[in-house]
Design a protein around this nucleic acid. Structure first.
Lengths: 242, 242
DNA sequence: GTCTATAACTGGATAGAC
DNA sequence: GTCTATCCAGTTATAGAC
């Protein structure tokens, strides 16, 4: 719009030679593309999409800025790539865990068992997977509480959630599906806050609880959520009696 | 660092006269400061701190950019002012609600009642307060799931949460305090996701549930959370028996 | 208290050499 | 696939007129 300036000025001066060092071909066998994803994952988890610049990502990755645009087209492309990279692994792990639970328990399914089978793979990945998983969960938690995040969460995770809902419906046959969706939504809020390992609970409890102790979290979270689901069954039975 | 360029170029050209119109003295009786807070609240809720520019805030407020720096010192000052403005009201409403519950129910306190007294004021404000409350809750939900948000949430809300914990401890005398902190943390995750009115559950349930229907949310959320707390009591009793 | 103007710098993105 | 050099719109923030 305000393009009233001369297009081609005759280059004012010589620039300084910038950084001189070995070209970061591949570092520890990992290529620039992977390093960029790792760096972006960490930074996006810390400060969100808008709080991170492509230059910060490139710097942390020890790669050149321009490589982001070569590999991922633009900043959103990078973000989506980060988001989807681990989703496959997580969804597969969940699917296997739910299947194993169903076939092991035969006909007598419980809400507690189904919820444990759904949540445990995430805890497991956070505890025993590479460190990137912690950033990843923090990122998902952050995006999940965003008005614009619904789109990408829906696209990536909802089919996986429906597997849980199916099993819960068999475990709690009296309860309408919409009650299960509501309860799942509450579960999702608790689960993502717990997995993000925000140290809210540490400060609140003055150190009595430590958010990073996932062994403490696992049993409590599953118990709490199962109790929540069962409370909705009770409520449904009471309402149905009227 | 790269300040090797000439310091004072001789101003290239005349600038265009920008916007010409009535000076937005006060609009509907509200002064610029308040309009800036309202606009910032909405925009920060939509896109987070880094996703919003001071210019966007000023434009939406119909005020001048420079007023932000006059009234709030800088962008973070604006953010904190937004965050703290409604906190007083909310904390007072909660305090009154909890007190009313305790004095009305005499000695027989219940987890269900305490949780309802804690959550209801927020639902009430979201339904019957001015529209800014919806933005505000969406903003708090977003900040709560952020690594850097713990600081401000702690400063603003934790004393209020301790009031709830006190009552819960009287309602559930058998349960150690740290279990209450864990359970509250799960409650907080569900509550903030519900109040942010993200339409996650709408898509997941294909329209069966509507996040914006807070009448549906209120009873279910309270039931669910109360069920979760009671499940932790049960678990505690079982563990104590070993 | 509000507006104009501008300083000083950073943002995402691209062209083209190697 | 990777790096250099650059574009330029847009960023926070300030000085000073009104």
């Amino acid at each position: 719009m305000t393009s009233s300036q001369p297009k081609s000025l005759p280059r004012p001066k010589k620039k300084k030679p910038k950084r001189r060092g070995r070209p970061h071909r591949s570092e520890g066998g990992v290529k620039a593309r992977g390093r960029l994803l790792d760096a972006a994952e960490r930074l996006f988890a810390d400060r969100g999409f808008y709080g991170v610049t492509t230059r910060q990502v490139a710097t942390m990755a020890g790669a050149d800025d321009a490589l982001i645009y070569y590999h991922f087209k633009n900043k959103w492309g990078l973000f989506n790539a980060v988001f989807e990279r681990r989703a496959r692994v997580l969804i597969t792990a969940r699917h296997d865990s739910l299947n194993a639970y169903v076939s092991s328990s035969g006909v007598k399914l419980s809400a507690h068992g189904a919820i444990a089978a759904f949540i445990n793979p995430m805890i497991e990945l956070s505890q025993n997977g590479d460190l990137g998983w912690k950033s990843y969960f923090a990122l998902v938690a952050q995006i999940d509480n965003t008005p614009w995040g619904g789109e990408i969460i829906h696209r990536v995770f909802d089919t996986s959630v429906h597997e849980l809902i199916e099993i819960l419906q068999r475990a709690l046959p009296g309860i309408p599906k919409r009650e299960l969706y509501w309860a799942y939504n509450f579960l999702a809020g608790s689960m993502m806050l717990a997995l993000s390992e925000t140290e809210r609970v540490d400060r609140l409890s003055d150190g009595l609880c430590r958010a990073k102790d996932l062994d403490e979290v696992r049993t409590r979270l599953v118990n709490y959520c199962a109790g929540g689901f069962l409370a909705m069954v009770t409520e449904e039975r009471l309402a149905g009696r009227a």
